[in-house]
């Protein structure tokens, strides 16, 4: 009887240990805090657009459709021609290119002396994402997806990246070959990694 109890107790212990191991391997939450959001809730929050465009919504637009939108919603800050306004330059043209040696400082790499988003960003999705999340100033988030597509198309056309009649939508936007597509190197980071720089005084 005694031996049998002990045997049972050992078995129970073994089951408990196995159970714990399983718990650890499944990485269950430890604290049980927080609420599980629904798929719809996450979709409503998630405005980050990946370079592969997987989060882009339905809709589309062309530069032609974007031109009147630009005049109506953007020109007062960014200038009628996309430069010379109070807000950052959006459209680069030869006439606004400053003389060599008089160029304003711009982010590296400086392409055609410009820090214009449509020229500098390696992916067109960055433009769509930023107009959608951050424009127009004071009315952020008010643009409909079609309007964001049309404005993106307008800026890309005006900067010589796409033709005027190209339809920009969820499928075509990530495919657009940007002038600075290969113009960046991502830094690596590891714990305890020094910067690759000569370290002699």
């Amino acid at each position: 009887m005694g031996a049998c109890t002990m045997h049972l107790r050992n078995l129970l212990l073994l089951v408990m240990i196995l159970g714990l191991c399983q718990l650890a391997s499944a990485q269950s939450p430890t604290y049980g805090l927080g609420k599980t959001p629904t798929t719809e809730e996450i979709r409503a929050w998630d405005i980050a657009i990946s370079p592969d465009g997987k989060e882009l919504p339905q809709g589309g637009g062309t530069a032609k459709e974007g031109a009147p939108l630009y005049a109506q919603k953007c020109a007062s800050c960014h200038g009628a021609t996309g430069s010379g306004g109070r807000a950052p330059e959006l459209i680069r043209s030869e006439s606004t290119t400053p003389a060599p040696g008089k160029q304003p400082p711009c982010l590296s790499p400086c392409i055609r002396g410009a820090n214009v988003m449509a020229i500098h960003s390696p992916y067109a999705t960055t433009i769509w994402d930023y107009i959608n999340r951050g424009m127009p100033f004071g009315k952020e988030g008010s643009l409909k997806p079609n309007e964001v597509y049309a404005l993106t198309a307008f800026l890309l056309y005006k900067n010589g990246v796409i033709p005027e009649d190209q339809v920009v939508d969820a499928q075509s936007l990530p495919q657009i070959k940007m002038p600075n597509r290969d113009g960046y190197v991502l830094p690596e980071w590891k714990h305890g990694m020094p910067r690759p720089f000569p370290n002699k005084p």
Partner: peptide, 27 residues
């Protein structure tokens, strides 16, 4: 599973590996 190239990201990228290696972590 990838760099998102957000507005803040794109403003801090460089095409020069030597420069890129001197970003992220302050010296």
């Amino acid at each position: 599973d990838r760099y998102y190239m957000t507005y803040n990201d794109y403003g801090h990228i460089s095409n020069d590996p030597k420069v890129a290696a001197l970003t992220f972590q302050w010296g």
